[in-house]
């Protein structure tokens, strides 16, 4: 179960994935250190979302090796569940549970997966909602909240499991412009607190400010990997230059 430790909290080695005939991931290799914040960007359809969804097995990879916190992802269900407990995820469409209130959304995981006492879970949930800035919305249903508020509840829900790694799959893409900032602020605070994060996003301002590294994807391949400084000022590949010229306009 335990594979090499100490060389990275997430390790990708030559990971491939196909949807039928379509080769989505074409040999992805990278390593993420504990506490690192990595932004993945690239044109749509380049496989960046698919890539981070393989980390908690929402998508299966067909070749190569993925090691998360010393555990290799295989078809072993217990292994998958163990990894999911350590990896929190925030989705583009929030995916809150509409039949539960905000605080119930947050306590669900701790109560049922971590077997935490209800009162304890409640207390943690309220603290987390406070941390993401919406303690007053605790008893509302998702349908009564704005997009930005929903996404912050979703972040709190993921944090409630005390994950070691947080994945963000285009967390601001479905938001109205005036709500993007409130979500990004929460994410920045989280990054500064030392959380290991992988963020798929088009928010280049966020990438520049927070990321330790930026990874650029195209056609299912990892084209370029660099510090924000280098990435924005001295992109190596033609494809990266083109992408940056389009997105920074």
């Amino acid at each position: 179960m335990s594979v090499t430790n100490g060389e990275g909290i997430i390790i990708y080695r030559d990971v491939h994935k196909w949807y039928g005939d379509f080769h989505v991931l074409r040999g992805i290799t990278f390593t993420l250190q504990k506490g690192e914040v990595v932004v993945i960007c690239g044109p749509s359809g380049s496989g960046k979302s698919t890539c981070i969804r393989t980390i908690n097995r929402l998508e299966e990879h067909q070749r190569g090796q993925i090691i998360v916190d010393g555990m290799e992802l295989t078809n072993d269900l217990r292994n998958i569940e163990a990894i999911r407990r350590e990896v929190g995820m925030v989705f583009q469409q929030f995916n809150l549970f509409p039949h539960l209130t905000a605080v119930q959304n947050v306590t669900l995981g701790p109560i049922w997966v971590l077997k935490m006492k209800k009162s304890k879970a409640q207390q943690i949930a309220l603290e987390l909602l406070e941390r993401v800035g919406i303690p007053e919305q605790a008893d509302k249903h998702p349908g009564q909240l704005s997009g930005g508020q929903q996404q912050r509840v979703a972040i709190a829900r993921a944090l409630a499991m005390s994950p070691k790694i947080m994945l963000f799959d285009e967390p601001t893409s479905a938001l109205d412009p005036e709500m993007i900032k409130e979500v990004l602020d929460v994410m920045k605070e989280l990054a500064r607190s030392g959380m290991t994060m992988i963020v798929v996003t088009h928010e280049m301002g966020f990438a520049r400010e927070v990321a330790d590294r930026i990874i650029f994807f195209d056609y299912g391949q990892l084209v370029e990997e660099n510090t924000p400084e280098e990435f924005f000022h001295n992109p190596v590949h033609e494809r990266t230059k083109l992408f940056l010229s389009q997105i920074l306009e």
Binding site: R57, R84, G88, M89, L108, W112, V113, A158
Partner: peptide, 17 residues
């Protein structure tokens, strides 16, 4: 929607839960 399953799996719930 599929997202409901994904969100549930992502917080570690198993299939039955």
């Amino acid at each position: 929607p599929r997202g409901q399953y994904e969100a549930a799996y992502a917080i570690g719930l198993n299939g039955t839960l």
